[in-house]
Design a binder for these strands. Structure first.
Lengths: 110, 110
DNA sequence: TCTATAGTCAACTAAATGGTTTACTAAAAT
DNA sequence: ATTTTAGTAAACCATTTAGTTGACTATAGA
């Protein structure tokens, strides 16, 4: 098992912070400007902006300028790849569980 | 949408390093001792041991002592929860895509 | 035109991270 | 009994991370 996991840890790194998880959840309800996005957080807008940059460097978020405001939008692909990577292990575990129960059934039938 | 995502960033943090990704992949092929696990890595066993501790602190790996050797084993639950969290966004995006195509169809039919 | 708003940039700080080495304990093997 | 093997623990180091503040640019609105 060596899946297409190049750089998957970059995606996980982007998701390894509670502020960024909250940003993702906010953006999943639709596009928002940076200042609007910053409001709920108990930190400076500069700090939120840095988190957004980490997310956009990892390809999870796109930022587009309209007038003087920057709008942030979720990009699905990296998180889909991360989900696929996790799904492979999911499959592995359920197979192992099936093997185990098959084994136990054989044991019991003897 | 506020799913059961308490501490999900801890799981993502554990997965945010390429050494730990490689450890997970190795452990998915079965239980291994720490020294066996360390061999392929170009770093000290102490360093690998620290990575294993990070994984076990996050609940992704169990370490059990037999004699003088420690065996490491994957624990599926946190990664399953992480996958579920990602799946929610997967669902959201496909719905959004459906809404978009519905919208475009309505536009075209006028 | 003046002022308020949206945002960046640079410099700084404290704490966390990923690694090292050396010294140690515990179990196995000879 | 001695030596090897498996692993931990502590001290140390360099880099990254998560945040701050203050000065700046650019757009929008009065």
């Amino acid at each position: 098992m060596h899946p297409n996991n190049f750089g998957i840890e970059k995606t996980f790194g982007a998701l390894s912070d509670s502020t960024r998880i909250a940003i993702i959840e906010r953006l999943s309800r639709g596009e928002v400007s940076l200042s609007e996005l910053s409001k709920p957080f108990a930190m400076s807008q500069t700090a939120v902006s840095k988190h957004v940059k980490i997310l956009s460097d990892a390809g999870l978020v796109a930022v587009k300028k309209r007038g003087r405001t920057r709008f942030c939008e979720l990009l699905p692909e990296p998180m889909q790849q991360a989900e696929n990577w996790l799904m492979i292990y999911q499959k592995f575990w359920s197979e192992r569980f099936n093997n185990l129960s098959t084994f136990l059934q054989q044991e019991n039938s003897q």
